[in-house]
Design a protein around this nucleic acid. Structure first.
Lengths: 325, 325
DNA sequence: TCAGATAATTGTAGCGCTACAAATCCTGTT
DNA sequence: AACAGGATTTGTAGCGCTACAATTATCTGA
């Protein structure tokens, strides 16, 4: 900074202002400083700025997995919104709670302005740390009991809507594929919501099968086999993700089963593959992009002191009807 | 830090050493400091440490897209390797060169220890900045002309291998699906490599079709239609990604074409879907995880001054044979 | 017991930047 | 010409931490 200042014949403070508060600096001066900075390859040191001002324009997001497209739109929404408002989004991947905690610690060490998390299950250490440091935190894909801020949709309402859709289609032996590794309400909440509807209609509500991973195609065939053992006349399945649904669909192809005549298949997440299979997959669209946008908006407003703690935003969902149901 | 020091009855320097150089501090003291730090929710301020030491344990990676699984293993490889060696990996998404430049600027502002990029096409501004600041930079998925460090495999050799595979399978009217938005050698290099083999055999080498996006299923049907217009007797296609290949496969299903009898389909990337379709997709496995590992190793060695500039590592590839060819 | 060596701890200074207050420069008035 | 009042610019101090040198504690063997 000093070199730039010297080269431009101004004080270091003017250089600082040029980048932080351009309005404070005269057009002409600003231009000159910018030019010289560019020529010298000068980039303001965020770390030092952060230290001096106690503020940061960096927001950290912890993402469970990029193995599939489920979080793509969510991340895009965050990225777009953050950069629109002059913030920077950096990502860390974490597939387990331990990794999430490590990621949170890294972000805390970086003194980010805020943290975006997925889900409401976190290690105690992490919760403790976030509480003690007081960083703004937004949890997404969840609907209630926010740690600080939350944005999501109601999994329960969505599950009910999906089951109703299958019932309306005249299905009576509906199977449910769950995610065994689920530490999150996002997955576990679905079971009771699923059963409640069937019980009300006097139908079997015990056609449940848990798979190890929610993102693999391979889970589909396994689950279908498991469910068929419980009821060979199974006529519909509700899947945890479109990937699993596609796996089931491929398996139906191998078995020569017509979809949806022999089996109706409902997916979840509106992944790209849902629109590309034949038949297309009926699925639940979780408004991921909007969730990403809103999560950044909440964090940024919180940084500005405009949002109270404990705030929840419901971004809703809608069902995309295709031929598989 | 001072609060922790006071609470533990030691000097701030001892607290600093406890975290940075545990070996320098007596077991007993270290333990006490750690406990009190945990109780107080103290996390060392990376920004300040970075500033004081002029060093950083954070490495930034710019990733083109998380829309599909193509980069999943690559990121995992980076993440695992970085954390094994005590570094932190943070990610930024960038789908365009402008976004990449912005991401690089952010990382530079954060004063990261190194930067990992995908491909060898970058904006001049970005190149200039990286050169002037002298950060270690590793480009991956590319094989030559490194800006600093590079790790990848030979797209040319891989294309040749794929074409040979189709020729060995007795195909004579082979179509090539390319990626129109390709700014990178990764995609453009393939065309001449593709043609060279066919010309040598005296076969048509003009069955080319460019699609807008390499990651969408939808590109498959479009490309197939385009290629069939050029040659209705097309008997094989080489796709830019498994996603496109799956799109072609689905389209064959709609048309009632048997794969590989009527049309052989070769994918690229060994995405998960390649093993789950029926028939399975023959594809090219780019050793992405190893690429991620090696890219971090190179950066970290470079930080330690052990690697010279201009170093390239070839992580190779191999062909996964399945039923589609 | 004590010099001499090693281990453990501790001040000091300063990393690059920004908040804040103070100083300087302009303009248009009177 | 003098001056109020705003626009610009500029010192000063300090953010939280670490390199480095200096200090103090502890141990060794004769």
């Amino acid at each position: 900074m000093h070199k730039v200042a010297a080269a431009a014949g101004v004080s270091p403070m003017t250089v600082s202002n040029t980048f932080r508060y351009p309005a404070r600096v005269q057009e002409e001066t600003r231009q000159r400083v910018r030019e010289i900075a560019a020529k010298l390859g000068y980039i303001p040191n965020h770390a030092a700025g952060n230290l001096a001002s106690g503020q940061s324009r960096v927001i950290g997001a912890v993402i469970p997995s990029i193995k599939n497209s489920s979080f793509y739109k969510y991340v895009r929404g965050m990225q777009d919104t953050a950069s629109e408002q002059g913030y920077e989004l950096v990502l860390k991947l974490a597939d387990t709670l331990e990794q999430e905690t490590a990621a949170i610690q890294t972000f805390l060490g970086l003194r980010v302005a805020g943290i975006a998390l997925v889900g409401d299950q976190h290690e105690d250490v992490a919760i403790d740390l976030m509480r003690k440091t007081g960083v703004p935190v937004v949890e997404s894909w969840v609907h209630d009991n926010p740690f600080d801020l939350a944005v999501g949709y109601s999994t329960v309402a969505a599950t009910r809507a999906m089951v109703d859709l299958l019932l309306d289609a005249g299905r009576e032996r509906i199977g449910f594929i769950g995610y065994a590794g689920a530490v999150s309400h996002r997955f576990t909440e679905r079971v009771p919501a699923f059963q409640e509807r069937l019980v009300a209609k006097g139908l079997r509500s015990d056609l449940l099968y848990l798979v190890d991973e929610a993102d693999g195609f391979g889970a589909g065939p396994k689950a279908l086999e498991g469910l068929c053992k419980l009821d060979p006349k199974l006529d519909a399945v509700l899947c945890p993700t479109d990937i699993v649904a596609a796996g089931v669909l491929f398996e139906c192809g191998r078995r020569g089963w017509k979809v949806p005549d022999r089996l109706a298949i409902a997916g979840w997440g509106d992944y790209e593959i849902a629109s590309e299979t034949t038949p297309g997959l009926t699925t639940l669209q979780p408004h991921a992009y909007e969730m990403g946008q809103e999560s950044m908006n909440m964090i940024i407003k919180r940084v500005a002191g405009k949002k109270p703690r404990g705030k929840v935003v419901d971004t809703g969902f809608h069902i995309v009807k295709r031929a598989s149901v």
